[in-house]
Simulated assay, not measured.
Amino acid sequence: MRIGIVGAGALGGAFAALLARAGHDVEVTARGAGLEAIRRDGLRLSGGYGEAHVRVEASDRLSQRPDLALVCTKAQDARQAIADNRDALEGTTVVVVQNGLEGVRVARELLPGADCFGVLSIIAANYTEPGHVRITTTAASYLGRGAGPADDGSRRVAALLSEAVPVVAVDGFEGAQWTKLVVNMLNALPAITGLSVQEVIADRRLRRVLTASMRETVRVGVACGVRFGALQGLGDRRLRLFARLPLALDQVLPLVMGARMGRVPNLGSTLQSIRRGQRTEIDFLNGAVAQRADAAGVPAPVNRTLTGLVHRVEETGAHVPVDEVLGAVAG
């Protein structure tokens, strides 16, 4: 099968390498040093899914219509990337592999003739250098669309992708997006402080802030009428209980998440963007929580503060000392 990957960064590069290793004809889009490296040396994958070194077609836009396309850009780049590749994507099957809540909606808006799905990936991948992705944590990815049960199309695409990497078709995909948003609260504090996710979780003071941002996200979702989808052992009942328990007890959740990551430092996608000098997708993560809170008329001070601190790091290039982070959240 011919598969197009729009955005060959950490996750896009991982999916491209795994699908090529499974025997598919893969074309990727990339820019700058990444594009040069892939054209020159191919894509290299290491870590949790083993070693792979594959040759794929690479350019700044897809050269022809694939049978299946994965859009793996950062959330803030998705609209432009889909528009740039509209001729190749319209009329085919498009899977948006992305954080945040808007990816599938944007794809449907721009590609009315495409069959659009979303994927929520828990895989932790470091883009170690142009053309080289290292998997630090393996996990199943979750595919679906809409708020109802998984349909035949979702099961078909999930089975195809599972030839290369585990993908599960899930019910209530839109609710699962909110559950993934809770998980994505792991991203902001590493970007702000420069610490790995594991180091943030190990720090009792930062773990308290992280837990508060997660609880706030659940409470905003509840205020918006969300029924949280099942994802990695988390679901509606558990998350609603999490939002009601004392903060001290709730810290078990990030501790469990940290234990699953193992010892290889997980930088988080937002810190990786900071290190590459790129804009982050924070407005689609913690910023999305603050935006939805405004619409629902409920407070979200922790997520609003963390969003602002990430923007400060983007602008200055300097991480924020832990004591200053704690003061900003407390204030």
Results as ranks from 00 to 15, higher is better:
residue 158 A to T: 08
residue 159 A to I: 09
residue 160 L to G: 10
residue 161 L to E: 13
residue 162 S to Q: 07
residue 163 E to F: 05
residue 164 A to G: 06
residue 164 A to C: 04
residue 165 V to Y: 07
residue 165 V to M: 13
residue 166 P to D: 10
residue 166 P to E: 12
residue 168 V to A: 08
residue 168 V to I: 14
residue 170 V to Q: 05
residue 170 V to T: 06
residue 172 G to F: 04
residue 172 G to H: 10
residue 173 F to I: 03
residue 175 G to R: 07
residue 176 A to Q: 11
residue 176 A to K: 07
residue 177 Q to R: 15
residue 179 T to P: 06
residue 180 K to G: 15
residue 180 K to V: 15
residue 183 V to R: 09
residue 183 V to C: 12
residue 184 N to V: 11
residue 184 N to D: 13
residue 185 M to V: 11
residue 187 N to S: 06
residue 188 A to M: 03
residue 189 L to M: 03
residue 190 P to F: 03
residue 190 P to R: 03
residue 192 I to E: 04
residue 195 L to Q: 14
residue 196 S to I: 07
residue 196 S to T: 13
residue 197 V to C: 12
residue 198 Q to I: 02
residue 198 Q to N: 14
residue 198 Q to S: 11
residue 199 E to T: 09
residue 201 I to E: 14
residue 202 A to V: 15
residue 203 D to K: 01
residue 204 R to E: 15
residue 205 R to C: 12
residue 205 R to G: 13
residue 205 R to L: 14
residue 208 R to A: 14
residue 211 T to L: 00
residue 211 T to I: 01
residue 212 A to K: 00
residue 213 S to V: 00
residue 214 M to W: 00
residue 215 R to N: 00
residue 215 R to D: 00
residue 220 V to Y: 02
residue 220 V to E: 04
residue 222 V to N: 01
residue 222 V to D: 03
residue 224 C to P: 05
residue 225 G to K: 08
residue 226 V to Y: 08
residue 227 R to N: 07
residue 228 F to E: 10
residue 230 A to P: 14
residue 230 A to H: 14
residue 230 A to R: 15
residue 231 L to R: 08
residue 231 L to M: 12
residue 235 G to P: 08
residue 235 G to M: 05
residue 236 D to M: 05
residue 237 R to M: 10
residue 237 R to W: 11
residue 239 L to P: 01
residue 239 L to M: 01
residue 240 R to C: 01
residue 241 L to W: 12
residue 241 L to G: 02
residue 241 L to S: 05
residue 247 L to S: 13
residue 247 L to A: 14
residue 247 L to F: 12
